[in-house]
């Protein structure tokens, strides 16, 4: 990813799955930090606009499109749904485009990251905890995750810090966030490569 970033290239994954499927799947792969777009409703619209939707199968093709910073298509190809992309080849394409590009580009900055010692408290069987934890996992956020459902010490710690047994809870750099939307927003702000 760093080399695509150096070539001023934003990588976007796209399938017809929902954002929830993307978050869970990305995390299962060890964390996918680049955007996975949900071409979910109307289903496959973006793929269809790019001629990459397979009507009969109801899914998109394994297609690749490179767009320059001026919004013009510079490369379009498919390896078929069962095929495998050659990422090295695609990186070379992006680097070549960037080298000859007359259109302006800006350097892509790295995220700041969370303050040291950040802790995310979660509960088992809690959708809000899962949501916060998936975002942290996909962004490889540097924090310690403590599950208060199976760790009495962590529960005691949470209660001391917040006088509540409410999770998810993010304690980070002197800030305490107890709403999953706030936690997600802060982790994305500090750990995701800015769009």
């Amino acid at each position: 990813m760093a080399r695509f970033q150096a070539a001023h290239t934003q990588v976007l994954g796209v399938s017809i799955d929902s954002v929830f499927s993307h978050a869970n799947w990305g995390s299962s792969l060890g964390g996918v930090s680049f955007p996975l777009l949900a071409d979910f409703h109307p289903k496959g619209k973006m793929a269809a606009d790019y001629g990459a939707y397979l009507d009969g199968a109801g899914i998109s093709d394994r297609a690749t499109v490179l767009i320059d910073s001026n919004g013009v298509v510079q490369h379009a190809s498919s390896v078929t749904p069962a095929g495998q992309r050659d990422i090295g080849e695609l990186l070379a394409l992006c680097e070549a485009l960037d080298a000859k590009s007359a259109t302006p580009v800006e350097d892509i900055s790295n995220p700041k990251g969370l303050p040291g010692g950040s802790v995310l408290y979660i509960k088992s069987q809690c959708g809000f905890s899962r949501k916060a934890n998936l975002v942290a996992s996909n962004l490889h956020a540097s924090l310690t995750v403590k599950n208060v459902s199976d760790d009495a010490g962590a529960m005691a710690e949470l209660k001391t810090a917040t006088s509540k047994e409410q999770a998810p809870c993010l304690i980070s750099g002197g800030e305490t966030l107890q709403e999953s939307d706030d936690i997600v927003a802060r982790v994305v702000e500090l750990c995701a490569t800015p769009l």
């Binding site: 695509f4 290239t9 796209v14 199968a57």
Partner: peptide, 16 residues
């Protein structure tokens, strides 16, 4: 991303 970044779009059939 106009005027800022090139965009590499990777379509894939399905999660999982």
């Amino acid at each position: 991303f106009r005027g800022k970044r090139h965009v590499l779009v990777l379509y894939y059939p399905l999660d999982w």
